[in-house]
């Protein structure tokens, strides 16, 4: 067992432990913090795979953005500090079953899928490579998706302002 394997299991423990605590904690704010640990663990896995750019994205967007958004939306509710009531047993059993069945289905799909080994050399996932691919205006460049992304972000920005401002004026 080499160092990378130990690290993998360590990070997996952080991810799964964080996820488990996030769904079992009865205080909603703590759930958000446990989710944070889980997401940082996933970033760690990307670092382990030497996907530095994806890891940075994971930290900037998910850890720095989405979790902040979740925490703010928790603070928008009335009972952010209180305990949530214990789940009904039947509901807990069925959600557990749904999770297990979902895992089983995903496993089945991965097991059945025949992965064809490519002969082409792997492209190095460095920020340098990603950047030059993204800005490339040649036949296989990604300049059009890159510019379309800004349209998508603009739509998201206008959408969130329209929806949130409606709430604000109603108050």
């Amino acid at each position: 067992m080499n160092v990378a394997t130990i690290l993998f299991y360590l990070l997996s423990a952080v991810i799964l432990g964080g996820g488990l605590l996030a769904v079992t904690s009865r205080k909603i704010f703590r759930s958000a913090v446990f989710l944070l640990f889980s997401l940082i663990g996933i970033a760690g896995l990307y670092f382990l795979l030497e996907y530095e750019f994806i890891a940075a994205v994971q930290i900037v967007v998910y850890v720095g953005g989405i979790v902040v958004l979740i925490i703010f939306s928790i603070f928008l509710t009335h009972g952010s500090g209180g305990d949530m009531e214990k789940p009904v047993l039947i509901r807990a059993v069925f959600s557990g079953l749904a999770a297990i069945l979902g895992c089983a289905l995903t496993y089945l799909f991965i097991k059945e899928q025949v992965f064809i080994k490519s002969n082409a050399a792997a492209i190095e996932p460095s920020a340098n490579n990603i950047g030059s691919q993204m800005l490339s205006t040649t036949e296989h460049g990604y300049i059009l998706p890159f510019e379309v992304v800004s349209m998508l972000l603009l739509a998201a920005l206008i959408g969130c302002i329209v929806i949130a401002m409606k709430v604000k004026t109603e108050k």
Binding site: L76, I161, A164
Partner: peptide, 8 residues
């Protein structure tokens, strides 16, 4: 309860 402005 926080102000909705934070969320925006």
């Amino acid at each position: 309860q926080f102000n909705v402005g934070y969320y925006l």
